[in-house]
Design a protein around this nucleic acid. Structure first.
Length: 406
DNA sequence: CTTCCACCGGAAGTACCGGTAA
DNA sequence: TTACCGGTACTTCCGGTGGAAG
């Protein structure tokens, strides 16, 4: 391509009218001024937290519901409004928001709490958890005000060792504070989460419970319409496209986050193609792309051995129908041999399989074959060719993928 | 009724890494 | 420097276990 060609390309791209008015509206952490169809939940949480405006300590709250049902948005929204109200009444309180899927160990969660509260001098690693907890506790007491701690995706913390301990300490912290008070808000997608909570934590963490039900397709449509009006220029999205996104997301247990993601990607595709508006065809393309990106994000972050196990499963699912643990082990060892990598123990393999399951890449079902033992039936939950093509980007695997057959 | 397959998964421990405090 | 911290990836050992076959 010559210099003048590039010049012309730039000119052409610049002269195109952008479909977007404000892209940020479609980002994951955007909190809108209105949350349609969540009025009841907002009122409920606001009622509980309003105690703070009267100088009391709100009960600990526990929110649960599927992904993308507005839990995080509602919590952030109500806290924002509470801050505004408090400021107008000259009241002080502090809040920390921690996503424990990212800050997924007791130390890291504590570190993030400290950071959110503006407590400095805590290193990312190297100290004992108990010491850090003491320091955070002391600093919170020095605030001399109510402190609200939001623990989002709290199930990721609880399922880790030491997670219950931290939670227990946090629920008991008020007994150790003299000037400040702490309220906790726990948020989770996992509906069976309570099973993992120890009894000593359960009762105090779940003083109040708010359940978030999935959005229906019509409700998702309303949400999309609201966001589209803010994010796109007038007439840049066809109504049928919004309906399609709503229908697709409703199928995924009413996941609004997924819907908004789909809208954003569909918009980007339409713009890339130079279309004058977002149509159903762009939504379908976006659907594919979002799916692939999800897989790609999950797969590329995996450690080597987990990649190899996943590769073995992907290669197996091209041909065999029923995949058992034994079969996976066999295939995995063949893959290892071909690469000159030492395979891990069987015990480790079961952990890897469980991990791949929690990531949603595979699903497992324990079955008993009587005389013929007891095993797990393993099913790849994503397209084998996606997994293989993503892993084949690694030059170490590229050759192998074309060679091995089962 | 008992056997026994082909696994599961808890417990405890090791090696290593990147970090802190004294 | 040394002792210690949390965290990940992995090991070895071992006590289960559902249900068809015998």
């Amino acid at each position: 391509m010559s210099a003048t060609d590039i010049d012309r390309l730039f000119d052409e791209l610049l002269s195109r009218r952008s479909l977007f008015k404000d892209r940020r509206v479609l980002s994951i952490d955007y909190v809108p001024d209105e949350l349609p169809h969540r009025e009841k939940e907002i009122a409920r949480l606001a009622t509980i937290l309003a105690t703070a405006l009267r100088g009391g300590r709100p009960s600990n709250v526990f929110c649960y519901g599927h992904t993308g049902t507005g839990k995080t948005a509602v919590v952030k929204f109500v806290l924002k409004k509470l801050f505004e109200k408090a400021r107008s009444r000259n009241l002080k309180f502090k809040a920390a928001y921690v996503n424990t899927r990212i800050y997924n160990t007791p130390y890291r969660a504590l570190y993030k709490i400290a950071e959110e509260l503006g407590i400095r001098g805590i290193p990312k690693t190297g100290l004992a958890v108990a010491d850090v907890f003491e320091k955070v506790k002391r600093e919170i007491d020095r605030f001399d005000c109510l402190t609200i701690i939001v623990l989002d995706e709290i199930d990721y913390l609880v399922k880790r060792e030491g997670g219950n301990d931290l939670l227990y300490q946090l629920t008991r912290i008020n007994n150790m504070l003299s000037r400040s008070q702490v309220s906790l808000i726990g948020v989770t997608n996992d509906l069976r989460f309570r099973d993992f909570l120890e009894a000593r934590v359960l009762s105090s963490l779940c003083e109040e419970t708010i359940v978030f039900h999935p959005y229906t397709a019509e409700q998702l449509y309303d949400i999309l319409k609201q966001r589209a009006a803010l994010a796109f220029v007038d007439g840049a999205v066809e109504d049928s496209a919004l309906r399609l996104i709503a229908a697709l997301a409703a199928r995924e247990h009413g996941d609004a986050r997924r819907a908004i993601d789909l809208l954003r990607v569909a918009g980007e595709i339409a713009e890339r193609e130079g279309a004058d508006c977002v149509r159903e065809e762009h939504v379908w393309k976006a659907y594919e792309e979002v799916e692939r990106d999800l897989v790609s994000a999950a797969v590329s972050g995996l450690p080597l051995q987990e990649k190899l196990v996943l590769l073995a499963i992907a290669l197996l699912s091209r041909s065999k129908r029923q995949i058992t643990t034994g079969l996976v082990k066999h295939a995995y060892e063949k893959v290892c041999a071909a690469l000159g990598v030492a395979p891990v123990s069987h015990r480790r393999l079961t952990d890897i399989l469980n991990n791949l399951e929690t990531l949603g890449l595979i699903s497992c079902a324990l079955v008993s074959l009587g005389r013929y033992g007891r095993t797990k039936l393993i099913k790849l939950e994503v397209r084998p060719k996606d997994v293989i093509s993503i892993l084949a980007r690694d030059p170490r695997f590229a050759e192998l993928v074309s060679q091995i057959r089962f």
